[in-house]
Design a binder for these strands. Structure first.
Lengths: 337, 337
DNA sequence: GTGAAAGCGCTAACAC
DNA sequence: GTGTTAGCGCTTTCAC
């Protein structure tokens, strides 16, 4: 049996489609009597509005696209988990995409992002995407980018203060009496801005404390995964003079690093203190539990969606702004035992 | 500036909308000459088809809804990660929903699942959803349910053979010489079917080996999270006669259980061997690495999407089938050291 | 407050 | 092979 349409309802209720539409959307005031007639007809027919048709007529889809590098990376999964309810609350469905290896696809931005009018806006969490890539996009698409970025563009940024957070992390290690501190995760190239901000914090903390930096202790990694942390730690421990603390650019990296350290017979934190970044749930249950920088994911999600909605609803071009969510340092076993 | 429409293209190319549509969709054969004219016009206008309009006209949205209990549970994140590319390949976008605590919402099935024609079909991964709930849904919506289920309904099931897999897991422990084996995760109530199948496997393995079961070693948990595992292990270790092995109903449970065991001074696997279920990435990097039952997630994703597509494209009602993906036992440090 | 009617942009009979 | 045209189901301007 075919689905009932708005027109069917109108006929049954003996009113015009216009009135039914009003009732359904709560637009204009409708006489209590007609409202009841309409509502009864709706119930009787089991009428459900066709969202697609509504979208075509209104010109908006009520969907937003959220793009993350990887879905199975805990940090992104947790972020998404936060974004979805907030978006739903704001009346939007969430479409999810993994940017993954798709960076290859030259012309098109990513995945189905090229499809027009399928979503009203987009929240993009870049991994290795330079500013240039971002500006090569359809400027008409409302866009909020996750992660701090210094730029005045036609889109917004939402993130925590990476440099400050990283500085705190390293100061925490210094405060614990550590003097040979390594950093795992640097990415000294255009697409590695996020990593570079952490490195900047690393340097800042040293500068403040008047501590020299052993440049050989800054280890670059292609990504922020466990393997990267494991390999980097491996290299660090082979040194004649291994570090007594490590600042890892993600909890996953920290997890991998700790794994390697422990299996090589080092004690964490006694021999090597380790602090991560992201506060993934995992770090709260691993052994040792992992000290970390905890970004306020709820705030990030809320700010991003709020801002995107503003952008979607605005007729005028909206200037790009930089929004900061909070963060805090959570000391756990991997640094304080 | 407004977006160019198909009609604009038609005018510029001097052909009818029909022809443009043909070119865009590659339907009928088009003269090479007209095709070129059309394509030139498309390029010149920067025309991009309006997906929404297409959907309204065709009556299908090209989207499928995937519902999982929690996005930040590694197993589901990994599953989703597998589903998305497969769906995209099949020409579908993926809409994601968390069922989460939404079970409360009586009438409506879940989240935006009530919205009509927003998606062509749905892949549903139930957590605590009884068969009844499932049958109370819109029977017209093509549906594939993840997880083995014994039922002949109007939808399909895709999962691994839980009972067989669980049996293997426990046989692995028995083969290692363990005799007092505990199980963590039972859920002896209607919505706990998945858990009950694991318990059935647990019993089967004991039966085969002619081993008695100490019923007090079967611990129920409300969910399959780390906390559940941690608490259950706590209880087990307080016994006068603690178990020498544990079969956990998820890797997360195993992770929590191991965490507790280690911090209480037990050695894993020497004092207590632990095996999990799901093969989440985490278990490959934790210390010790976690032995587990590894479901073929790729196969699950592929089967689920394929089946859903069949269901979507079929005019006739399709009988519900039960599809089995493969699984294998992966022995790691938590059982074999 | 409600009705009539014109689209939103595309697809797909149905002709030619 | 290509043109004509009638919808898909809803919103919404404009009258009444």
């Amino acid at each position: 049996m075919k689905e009932a349409t708005l027109r069917d309802v109108a006929e049954l209720a003996g009113v015009s489609p216009r009135t039914v539409s009003n009732v359904v959307n709560g637009y204009a005031r409708v006489t209590e009597l007609t409202r009841q007639k309409v509502e009864r007809a709706i119930a009787e027919l089991g009428y459900r509005p066709n969202v697609l048709a509504r979208h075509l007529a209104t010109g908006r889809s009520g969907q937003i696209l959220v793009v993350v590098p990887y879905l199975d990376t805990p940090y992104f999964a947790e972020l998404l988990q936060a974004v979805i309810p907030v978006a739903r609350q704001a009346g939007y469905n969430v479409l999810i995409d993994q940017s993954d290896g798709d960076r290859e696809h030259e012309g098109q931005f990513i995945g189905h992002a090229s499809q027009r009018s399928l979503f009203d806006g987009m929240i993009y969490s870049p991994l290795g995407l330079s500013q240039e890539d971002l500006s090569r996009r359809d400027p008409a698409l409302p866009l909020v980018v996750l992660g701090e970025r210094t730029s005045e563009a036609s889109f917004d940024h939402v993130g925590i203060d990476d440099v400050a957070a990283s500085t705190e992390a390293v100061q925490h290690l210094i405060g614990l009496g550590r003097r040979r501190i390594a950093a795992i995760g640097d990415q000294p190239y255009p697409t590695g801005e996020a990593a570079q901000r952490r490195t900047a914090g690393f340097r800042a903390a040293h500068a403040v404390a008047g501590l020299p930096i052993d440049e050989s202790l800054i280890i670059g990694t292609p990504r922020f995964n466990r393997v990267d942390g494991a390999q980097a730690m491996e290299a660090l421990l082979q040194k004649d003079n291994p570090p007594d603390a490590v600042f890892c650019y993600s909890d996953l990296v920290a997890s991998g690093a700790i794994h390697t350290a422990l299996s090589k017979g080092f004690r964490v934190p006694e021999d090597i203190a380790v602090i991560g970044y992201d506060d993934i749930e995992d770090g709260r249950y691993s052994l040792p539990t992992i000290s970390t920088i905890a970004p306020d994911k709820q705030a990030i999600a809320r700010l991003a969606v709020e801002r995107l909605v503003i952008r979607i609803n605005s007729k005028e071009p909206v200037p790009g702004v930089d929004l900061r969510a909070g963060h805090r340092l959570v000391a756990r076993q991997s640094t304080i035992g």
